[in-house]
Amino acid sequence: MRELVALFSEPGTLDNLGIGQIRDGLADLLFPGISTVQTRARYLVLIPWTFQRAALGKSGAALVKAADREQREILLALREAGHTQGLIGRVAGAAVRVLPSTIYWNALQTYKILRQDTRPQHLPQTRKAASNDDEIRDGLPWSTLPPPESFPTDVTEQGFDLSAAEANWLRERMVVTCEGSLLAHLLSQPTMADLDVHNLWDLDLDAAPQKLRDLVEDTELFSLALHGAALLYNFMVGEAYERHELTSVEAPAQHYREELEQWSARYWNHPLVPTWDRSRLWRRFPAIPSRTQQFVETWIDGVNALGAGAPTDSVELRRLIGDREFQNKGAQSRLTNEKQLRLWQGASGAGRLQFRWPQASQILSDISEGLNHAGA
């Protein structure tokens, strides 16, 4: 559980200002099926195999129990073999509470690896047969590669490295089921783009269709604009922190004043800021609450009206941030609740939004390396 909490505590993950629905909506359009707690691509291969084995002669609670046991044994074997990069349960081992199947279940359904919209306890029983039996390989509910005869003992040798067959299969699943997404575009190219970039908008997308380039542009500009709001919020928290004479964090207000000055320079130096058509963003999300849209629009209009001035000195922008945080968090607002203020450790959602790019880039890299094994 500590590992799961740590993943959710990354800078930029916390939603102090109530924009998470837009952030997550953009991430879903870009990288369907990928979440912030996923780590490696091969879980999408291993999980179906564990459930196929568990379903032999079992259903309901017995199937779930068997799949639970299989997953824990595999996690322990991976840890003992030294395959710890991206290992769920790296610290807890077989005692881990959140299993890979819980983390990847939505992805399995998104990519139609799990053909049915169902929970583990509702999976059907299969008859006892060899692991490569046609009934298991081709039957519902799974659409997956047949497990090798050496599974699960072979995981200690292969670890999280995808074989060429596994990588090709995963690429096909994602391209077919995620048409129009950045995920599908990157996987469908003859040569994988250079993934070693900090932000997804730094990718080479010259070959991408205009609709996808527009989506990435909206994502970049939304991230850039709202980063300023997050920094101003932390600046205001830093001021309150100092007013209460709290000292665990050193000079937070000055730190965020300098951060905001740097952000303002990046914002006004961006060539696309003056021409951004924000109506294109809202057409993507017609169900966004009007209060959320109004907050975003008011923030950006306020910044644009301020020009190169410092947001820290704007009464209107400060009021906007304070009202929005209270609207979003109520009595738990750090700006009004001293107990919550004392728990502040110097940053709360202060990082720039990344839209699950760190997780997506790792999964894409896993697939790319698997394809390279066959010279693909």
Rank of each mutant, 00 (worst) to 15 (best):
L56C: 03
G180A: 00
L281N: 05
V273M: 11
W169G: 01
P32L: 03
E179C: 14
A376F: 07
P271T: 06
K58Y: 08
A27K: 00
I367Q: 01
D117V: 08
W268P: 05
W49F: 06
M192C: 10
S101E: 08
Y241W: 06
P48R: 07
R69T: 13
W357L: 01
M1A: 12
L17R: 09
D202Y: 06
V216S: 04
L272T: 11
R173C: 10
S181P: 14
S264E: 12
P124E: 06
L162M: 00
P358G: 01
T298W: 08
D202V: 04
L353W: 12
T292K: 00
A310K: 11
L343D: 04
L30R: 14
A305T: 13
G180E: 11
L7I: 07
Q52N: 00
M236H: 09
L30D: 03
W263H: 10
G351I: 03
Q121Y: 05
S223K: 10
D138P: 05
R171W: 00
A61C: 01
L99K: 11
T126S: 13
D15L: 04
E245D: 15
Q293I: 10
K128F: 00
A77L: 09
A225L: 08
D133R: 14
H227C: 10
T50D: 04
W282K: 15
P147F: 03
A184W: 02
G238S: 04
Y241P: 02
S348E: 11
S314V: 01
L335T: 10
